[in-house]
């Protein structure tokens, strides 16, 4: 089919729309009188809440832990202390993601050209993967929180083997996932198994969109 024929078909489609499509003015007028947020603006409070809650968690956590390091280190449970420090440090790193997302939300203007706006929106969605990376990175410390020095005296080899195996597996999984949860692996089976749920589909879609945008930008140069 030649190009003009596509255009002819499209014109006939337009004609049908012209003749048959009508605006429900009453409902459209209702929209103009309601207090309503755009989908993008409605994301802002969620991100802000996550950022503030995270800041409180990290702040209070460090307020408790720093004095222990300074004044009670000798008597403290070192496993708990170091596990908590790692957890709080990783969470603090995760807070930058929420800050970055808030900046992207504020910078996005839906009236701007398509590529620029879509790039921001796609980055906003795909950055949720970073949250997953951070979550997984905390995995090993949740297996060491409860360790204590008496375990050295009381545990037998089997108990130690189990505890160490669980922790090492968690450590391996955390590091492996941290490195491999990446846009370039989106087509791998394990990635789709992990993020194949419908909840994640906007994120996977945003990664594909970033690739399209990149292709367009490469040709723009």
């Amino acid at each position: 089919m030649k190009e003009p024929e596509f255009e002819e078909l499209w014109k006939s489609y337009d004609k049908k729309l012209e003749e048959n499509l009508s605006l429900n003015k009453k409902n459209a007028r209702d929209i103009t009188s309601l207090k309503v947020q755009s989908l993008l603006s409605s994301m802002r409070p969620v991100k802000l809440f996550a950022l503030i809650t995270g800041l409180l968690w990290v702040g209070i956590g460090f307020l408790i832990i720093i004095p222990i390091f300074l004044y009670g280190f000798e008597s403290a449970n070192k496993f708990f202390l170091f596990s908590a420090t790692i957890q709080l440090t990783v969470t603090a790193a995760g807070l930058w993601i929420y800050l970055y997302q808030l900046i992207l939300i504020n910078q996005t203007d839906i009236t701007e050209p398509v590529l620029e706006t879509q790039k921001r929106l796609a980055k906003l969605k795909s950055s949720t993967l970073w949250v997953a990376q951070i979550m997984f990175l905390q995995l090993p410390v949740w297996t060491t929180f409860w360790w204590n020095e008496t375990m050295f005296n009381e545990w037998n080899l089997i108990q130690w083997s189990i505890a160490l195996t669980v922790t090492l597996l968690a450590l391996y999984a955390a590091v492996w996932l941290f490195i491999n949860i990446d846009e370039s692996n989106k087509d791998k089976k394990w990635f789709q198994l992990l993020f194949g749920d419908q909840e994640w589909s906007p994120i996977i879609h945003s990664i594909e969109l970033i690739e399209q945008i990149q292709e367009y930008n490469d040709e723009n140069k």
Binding site: K26, N27, L34, K35, Q37
Partner: peptide, 18 residues
């Protein structure tokens, strides 16, 4: 799936175009 808009007073009208 992302329909998370919070309408402050009442639901939005559905049928805007026939």
């Amino acid at each position: 799936k992302e329909k998370r808009r919070r309408v402050i007073s009442q639901p939005l009208p559905d049928e805007l175009l026939h």
